[in-house]
Design a protein around this nucleic acid. Sequence first.
DNA 1: AATGATGTCAACCGCCCGGTG
DNA 2: CCACCGGGCGGTTGACATCAT
Length: 266
Amino acid sequence: MVGLMGWVVGEQGWRKGPWTPEEDKLLSQYVTLHGEGRWSSVSRCAGLNRSGKSCRLRWVNYLRPGLKRGQITPQEEGIIIELHALWGNKWSTIARYLPGRTDNEIKNYWRTHFKKKERSTRKSSERRRTQNAKIKPKQQQHDNEEVGSQINQVMIPTTQGNNNDKQELTFMDHPISSTMVDQNLAISAAPPTLSSWMDDNLFWGGVWNYGDQLAPQQEQICSKMALSFQNQATTNNNIISANNNNGFSWGEDLNNIYSDHHGFIF
DNA sequence: AATGATGTCAACCGCCCGGTG
DNA sequence: CCACCGGGCGGTTGACATCAT
């Protein structure tokens, strides 16, 4: 590696480090003209001394049209939390449901906002545990179950239903969002504004396949939630579709009734 | 005002996967 | 079937900004 005016040149001669406005301009012009793809040739043809990967990353995370800049909104935050609870660190998958946001952005947001909270929650819980070391077991157990004011954590079995392979779900308290957890089913509820920005196809494409059939008690929970949210969701022309047999979903209108025997993303 | 701690985010790294010859 | 290559993805790093002491 060789330092060059604050820049670094890689072993193969590629430039590294922050992009200059000139480089951005070259890349934007080239991609606008020729489209995405073949990133290795983009770097050559556009006259950029950058690796293909670097070009792709710069385009996808910074130059691509339609990218939102600025703070993640509370609504977006809610979506991130819900989807992360379902998919874990599948940032690119989560990003597909947040138009204008990149996987990198979401990943950074999660790490800075929720890892932090997770840490502080753990810290305070450890502190409590130390302080309560002399407290009788029952009281201690109650304290350990207590979590921070913002984050609720539950352990649910994974789709395999293996108790040894539990998955941690984290939900933020949200004025509208709520969570119900049953023995074998975790259901999360996102703000009813979800469908106002979410592309229908993406939404349905993302429906969580939780298994073949819902147990009667699971269906019951879905139905209960459907009715409960139907009462709540009266804003933004959002309608919750309820199907007492199979569950419910949000949609732009009542034609969008999700009635399959699968899991749900709410 | 100085300094250390913490937060933020762009960019890089390394692994994995699918396409192709 | 296998090796190679390009692209995509999640994890990590490092520079800079902001905050706390």
